[in-house]
Every structure is written in C-alpha cells, then in structure tokens.
C-alpha cells in the first residue's frame, strides 16, 4: 500500500511535526518514505503544509497532487486541499476549529475535535497527536508502538516528560475513530 498524505494547518499547530513523525515511523518499519515541506512565502504567512509518502515501493514524486489522505487543521487548509483528495481517500479535519462541513461525498470524511480533546488532556499543543492517533487507527499504516518509539528517540531531556501526554493524546485519537 502507498499512503500519500498532505498535512496542513496554521504554523504552530504541529502539522510538520506529525508529518515527520509518520515518515520516521514508516522508515523504522522498513518502508520507503519521503517528507516534503511547503516552504516559501506561505511558510511565513502562517499556514504550513507537508507531503508525506509512505510506501512499500520506492517513492517517485515526493510532491503529491492527489493525496489519498488529507489532514486539515484549519479552515483555509480544508478549502485549499479538499478538492485535491483522490476519490476514495480520507479527510481528517479539526472540527474544533473548522465550523463548515466538507463538501466531498466520494471520500471518507472524519471530523476530529482535536483542540477540545487536547484541552481536556490539559495541553492544547497535543491536538495534532489526537489527529495522528485517529490516522493510525483508521489506516493501520504504522503501529502505535513504532510512533511511541520515535517519540522516545526525539523527545529527550526536558521534553521527555511530555511523552506520556503525547501517548495519551494518540490513544484518545484512536479511541475516537475506533
């Protein structure tokens, strides 16, 4: 299987980070992966997105024109990328912040109240991890354990204490779509 995902949102919502997390996890599971950030003016304008490919085959284009998975963490991202999603693909959107409903009917639309759940967990910053949990559950592209081990590798020192919270958020996200 080949996952071609676009993660999009405001800068600071951690979309680049969960994209990387997915790519790393894919790599540790021996898959072919690539991660490509959007950069340029929009990077500074506040919105950010990245493309992630996780595949059993060598990755051709790291730039994705027809994602089979879209994560939209804010409204502009939804409006920009929704039309691009491949028929039959998945759309995860942050229903805490996006108060419109996606129009597409040929794809699976999964609302995630990511910010609300993160707030319940006591830290708004893990909204991205809630979505990530949902993706893991829905796609099964990589194992939760792999993602946790990536977190353990990357979150060291002061940040290590945040691993448990991130894990909680991931699990919440999984429960949500379970």
């Amino acid at each position: 299987m080949t996952l071609e995902a676009i993660f999009a949102g405001f800068g600071g919502q951690g979309v680049m980070l969960i994209g990387q997390l997915l790519a790393y996890a894919g790599m540790y599971e021996g898959k072919q992966v690539s991660w490509f950030p959007s950069y340029g003016p929009e990077m500074r304008g506040g919105t950010a997105n990245c493309s992630v490919v996780v595949s059993d085959e060598p990755v051709g284009s790291p730039v994705i024109s027809e994602p089979n998975l879209l994560v939209a963490m804010n409204r502009p991202s939804l409006e920009k990328f929704e039309p691009m999603v491949k028929s039959g693909g998945m759309l995860f959107y942050n229903s805490s912040l996006i108060h419109i409903t996606p129009k597409r009917t040929d794809i699976e639309v999964i609302p995630i109240p990511a910010n609300d759940i993160a707030a319940e967990l006591g830290n708004a910053k893990v909204a991205n991890m809630v979505v990530m949990g949902a993706i893991l559950k829905k796609t099964g592209i990589v194992d939760l354990e792999t993602v946790i081990s990536v977190l353990k590798k990357t979150m060291t020192g002061n940040k290590a204490k945040l691993i448990a919270l991130n894990q909680q958020a991931l699990e919440k996200g999984m429960e949500l779509v379970g």
Binding site: S34, W35, F36, Y39, P62
Partner: peptide, 10 residues
C-alpha cells in the same frame, strides 16, 4: 533544486 534541499528521506 529547493525541493531536494528541503525534503526528507531515509
């Protein structure tokens, strides 16, 4: 090009 510079791969 900039894409190759910015992208990550294993």
């Amino acid at each position: 090009d900039g894409l190759l510079g910015q992208m990550m791969e294993p």
